[in-house]
Amino acid sequence: MTTVIATSGLVKRYGRVRAVDGIDLGVQQGDIYGFLGANGSGKTTTVRMLLGLVLPTSGEIELLGERMPRAGRRVLHRVGALIEGPAHYGHLSGRENLSLLDASGRGGSWRTRSRRVAAALEQVGLGGVGRRPVKAYSMGMRQRLGLAGALLRRPELLVLDEPTNGLDPQGISEVRELLLDLHRDGTTVFLSSHLLAEVEQLCTRVGVLDRGRLVLQDRLATLTAPTGSTVVHTSDPDRVRAALDGRVTSVEGERVIVRGDDPAEVNARLVAAGVPVHGLALERPSLEAVVLAAAGASPDRVDVRR
């Protein structure tokens, strides 16, 4: 497995503020990497450093095996990016915008340009958009056009910052399907987001940023692995306690946590004791719980210092 993004000791300082404070990212080929963090935790600065827009104060970045920002000209055309929302020339049509973007850099002949543009528009569901100027687009359409721009070069790596911003629920699920399709075809996806649910549904690996530090980086399956307890939903928690003496670790309303990683065994005992069981499941920590445990208070919260 090859490493697609690797940073070591990456630091960006703005004056006295360390926006990014020594992070070591590792994204492998074939990952869908969820880059999580509250607003202001340094996600966007990191993404911009990966793409050579912001120059690091210290530390190293390797993108597709080459040193950034020096190798930007060789590497970046293999990367598709959506950075902090889409941006286009409002007076031109979506097609013309993509065509200009395609013509701006190397790679791909002009003869096949209109075909590439049409394919990218088709992919994001804007195939029939016509000659309307972008300023007449809805926010969701602009987001789709931004995605089309990222997909234009058939990149090996997609770096997406909040790709579902401004999309309605149908749009979000369409984008999710699209990303899963691309991933199946071998595209590595680096997804920066603060929407935990989105990351939980999509990603294979997760990194959590808190105040410029990477406080957690692991496989999603490991982070949300069963805890070894079973969750029992019942209308009569007291009788559960009686039937499974000593194994009940906590009771919250009708939700009872029982030690033991075999729900079937727990169920058999409860049924034998005549306890009404409404639901039964292995206890897994939610991604939200994992993230909240790893990260502190929101960095855009500014409390009075005492």
Binding site: L53, A87, S104
Partner: peptide
């Protein structure tokens, strides 16, 4: 307009 970041990431030197 925000298009500068997309041009530079395209990449355009």
């Amino acid at each position: 307009a925000g298009t500068l970041r997309y041009l530079l990431a395209r990449p355009v030197g």
